[in-house]
Each structure stands twice: as C-alpha cells, then as structure tokens.
C-alpha cells in the first residue's frame, strides 16, 4: 500500500491546482461578463490582417 503515499498527495495536489486556478480566474474578473466572453472569442481584432 506504499503506492498510496504517492497517489493521495497527487490527487490532492491536482484538486488544489484546480481550486487555485478557479480562485485566480475569479479574482481576474473572468466571471464578470459571461455573455461578453462567449462572443469575444469570435472576434478577429487580435489577428493582423493577412497581406494581400
């Protein structure tokens, strides 16, 4: 059962990573404008116009 010594901390670490990522995204204001975020992904304003 020594494998538990690796598996349990890894499981917890993964969970914690997810939690930290969520709290970070919450602080960064990513949940403030859900409707806007849904459409912003379609905009091309960050892509330089292709040379003609």
């Amino acid at each position: 059962m020594t494998i538990l010594l690796f598996l349990v901390p890894i499981a917890l670490l993964l969970g914690l990573t997810g939690l930290v990522a969520f709290v970070w995204s919450l602080r960064a204001g990513q949940y403030d404008d859900l409707d806007g975020a849904a459409t912003r992904v379609l905009f091309d304003d960050d892509v330089a116009a292709p040379p003609k």
Partner: peptide
C-alpha cells in the same frame, strides 16, 4: 464573489473527501 469562493472550496473538498 464571496459565495462563489466558498462554493469552490466546498466543491474541491467534497470531491476529494468523496474520493
């Protein structure tokens, strides 16, 4: 935002404890 933080912590803990 406060509730969402609490919710995130509860979700994280519930999943791991359930494991």
């Amino acid at each position: 935002r406060y509730l969402l933080r609490c919710l995130a912590v509860a979700g994280f803990a519930a999943m791991n404890v359930m494991l």
